[in-house]
């Protein structure tokens, strides 16, 4: 079982590279927690993510559940604080300068740089969450239908999560 210090260090590191928020760091979080450290299996990771999605609130709360599942409730609070604090400090510090740089050419170049990078990161996060049992047809079906419906329609995503739960009930027993 990981120590609180270990949890804190990993989530501080994740915090600093979470450009685009939680979705961007899901692949790395899953890689560390499941593949490198073995604190839980991929199915448990996807289930914790589902529980966090089902609760109201910022999706950053998934860090609290992953920490909790890894090493108890204190680790959950440590993971959440470690993930939020460095980014919040950076935001606090940068917040005053941003508006002054509104017309700076480098800011526009950087915003364009981030688009394809974020696209790749978020898609990878989706892939690791959607394949807790490896690449099987059931997961491809559920994730594919949800991805296309979200892309093509304005349906509330909560219906898609609920629909995924119903399909899971019939496909995964």
């Amino acid at each position: 079982m990981p120590t609180l210090l270990e949890i804190a260090l990993y989530f501080i590191l994740l915090s600093l590279v979470s450009v685009g928020g939680i979705p961007s760091v899901m692949p790395e979080m899953q890689r560390i927690v499941v593949e490198v450290k073995g604190w839980m299996d991929p199915a448990a990771f996807t289930q914790m993510f589902a529980v966090a999605q089902a609760a109201p609130g910022p999706n950053v709360l998934v860090t609290a559940l992953i920490g909790w599942k890894s090493a108890g409730i204190a680790a959950g609070l440590v993971a959440l604080a470690a993930f939020c604090a460095p980014a919040a400090a950076l935001t606090y510090w940068v917040g005053g300068y941003w508006d002054r740089m509104r017309e700076a050419p480098w800011r526009k170049v950087f915003q364009r740089t981030l688009i394809p990078v974020t696209v790749g990161f978020v898609a990878a996060g989706g892939y690791v969450l959607a394949t807790p049992l490896g690449l099987d047809w059931r997961g491809v079906l559920i994730a594919g239908v949800c991805a296309l419906t979200l892309f093509l329609t304005r349906l509330n995503p909560l219906w898609l999560l609920a629909g995924g739960g119903v399909l899971g009930y019939f496909l995964y027993q």
């Binding site: 993510f49 898609a123 892939y127 959607a130 949800c146 898609l160 899971g168």
Partner: peptide, 12 residues
């Protein structure tokens, strides 16, 4: 599990 996989699909 199904809802979690759907959430992964939403990311995609």
């Amino acid at each position: 599990t199904g809802a979690g996989i759907a959430g992964g699909g939403l990311f995609i």
